[in-house]
Amino acid sequence: MSEKKSKSKNTRSKSARAKSVSPEQILSFYREMLLIRRFEEKSGQLYGQGLIAGFCHLYIGQEAVVVGMQSAIGEGDQVITGYRDHGHMLALGMEARGVMAELTGREGGYSKGKGGSMHMFSTEKNFYGGHGIVGAQVALGTGLAFANAYRKNDRVCLAYFGDGASNQGQVYESFNMAKLWNLPVVYVIENNQYAMGTSIARSSSETQLHRRGASFGIPGFEVDGMDVLAVHAAGTKAVKHARAGKGPIILEMKTYRYRGHSMSDPAKYRSREEVDAVRKQSDPIQMLKAKILDEEITGEVELKAIDKEIRAQVNDAADFAVDSPEPDPSELLSDVLV
């Protein structure tokens, strides 16, 4: 992938983009993004009812990033991220029930209720968390990639982090080692414009985060993170780059979160108009829906049916999460050591 090609991505025609993606894949992108959207709306609702506690960071608005990236990796590739992790787990195919039951702190959750929103894992799906310390997942993900290189398998690690984490020192310590040893890692920066309440302009001397690897010799590209097909295309190239032994690569996803940083965010640092404009003009789900109808991939009725099915799935997950018992008191002191 060259800088030149990446820069020209916005000029590529829609039909050219669609060629590499089948109608079935487009519909599955739609379904996965919708699942995340509805799941997160339901999480917000359960939080409002007091059934979910603590910190709860919703992924609404950023769905195209994980769904597009997920479609770019293969069996055995690893994924690691920070605390805004619900979407990543659903995109990986982890059960909505298990994720929601972890949010409610119940026995049926992925961590048996002991981790919570920010701390879930699935060794089966190669999901390495869910990390609550901003930037930690970048060093850890570089270590997962180190293990791939050590074992000489051809697996790639996707390490997701936000614009906020981009200012943590360990990110650059990791960049340095990843390039020094040419580790197979794709750094996916989810630039949703706000680190909690601080806009990127107020926090960063270099706001074009894809350039942040330049002094290490790591190539970086800006991607429209609201366009799942653009993410899919960029992700596919980046994963190929890393898998080919060319070392790390950075993708900066320009995206946006509609909700607050966490549930108790009064969102006074940005205007309602700003949020509405993104929702109306570049919502990842609405944009894909328009494309699906425009290109007659399927019809309104079929999309309604998908919507209904997803709502049922999310309601089922919520019921499961509310009905699942609290962890047994014996769990208090288990799993401290092996």
């Binding site: 690691i80 390495y128 930690a136 850890l140 570089t142 270590g143 997962l144 990639a145 293990a147 310590e173």
Partner: peptide
């Protein structure tokens, strides 16, 4: 951090 990640992967 890198070493902990490698240990998560089983090394």
């Amino acid at each position: 951090g890198l070493a902990v990640g490698a240990a998560f992967a089983g090394l």
